[in-house]
Simulated assay, not measured.
Amino acid sequence: MSNWLEDHPVYTIIGHTVLVATVTWVVSSYMIDESKVNLYRAKAENADSKSSQYLAKISVLELELGKLKAENDRYLSWLTEDPKSMPAMDRKIKGLEKDLNKFKAAAASASASEVLEGAMAKVSSYEYSMPFSKGESFIDPKTKAVIGISDIGSDYTARGTLSLPGKEAVKLRGVQPGETWDFEKAGVSYRMTLDKVNWLNNTIKASVVEIPKDDN
């Protein structure tokens, strides 16, 4: 055998090389396959680990989201109950706007009533009255009728002077509250009335009113 190897050195070298290469390939293939298996196993385990981590994070996030929603509902409830909160202010503003519209409508109605009353006042009879004291005179600004009281008795009667348009002045003695004097001015009939005589505080009240034509 040794002689054959010595006689055929080329074949010996080739065979040895082939054998070494084969063994090397087999060992390398095994090692490579084992390495791939380990790599894939590591990747799979890593993927499982990441998946577990993501699932854990999702669970935590869902829990936090639930807490935030609960807190948000609670805060919204507090804000609604708090008069100074925005929701409460919004309701208050809407309420005030509603009241404002009601007041505007009422004001418009009142304005119309005032206009009507003013128009009625223009066609109504003239009337003027004023209180005054003993020693003073009552002068009607429209007709210039005058009544002056110089003294008041304890029996609540008065003394003074009466001056009516178109008539001579007359002396008054012992006149009582409710005494009246009719006169005319510019074709319109009027009535002077002694409304009140107060001996305690020495005050008098008189008035002049227009007499409607139907009452003449």
Rank of each mutant, 00 (worst) to 15 (best):
K102H: 10
P83K: 09
A108V: 08
S129Y: 07
D99H: 07
L96Y: 03
E117S: 12
P131K: 00
R91H: 12
K92G: 10
M130F: 03
S111T: 13
L79F: 07
L76N: 12
S137P: 00
L79E: 09
S109K: 11
M86Q: 10
Y75C: 06
K84W: 09
V123R: 09
S133R: 11
P83V: 07
G135S: 08
M130E: 14
D99K: 15
D82S: 11
A88Y: 06
A110C: 05
P141C: 04
V123C: 02
K122L: 12
A107E: 07
K142L: 14
F103D: 08
D90Q: 13
A105P: 05
E81F: 01
S137F: 01
G135W: 07
A112E: 14
S85P: 06
M89C: 03
D99I: 05
K84T: 15
L116C: 05
K94I: 04
A110R: 08
E81R: 13
D140M: 01
E114I: 03
L100S: 13
D99W: 09
T143R: 05
D73I: 14
E97C: 00
A108D: 13
K134A: 01
D73V: 15
V115F: 01
K104M: 02
P87W: 04
F103P: 00
L76C: 03
A119M: 07
E81K: 11
L79K: 08
A105C: 01
M120Y: 15
K84L: 12
R91A: 09
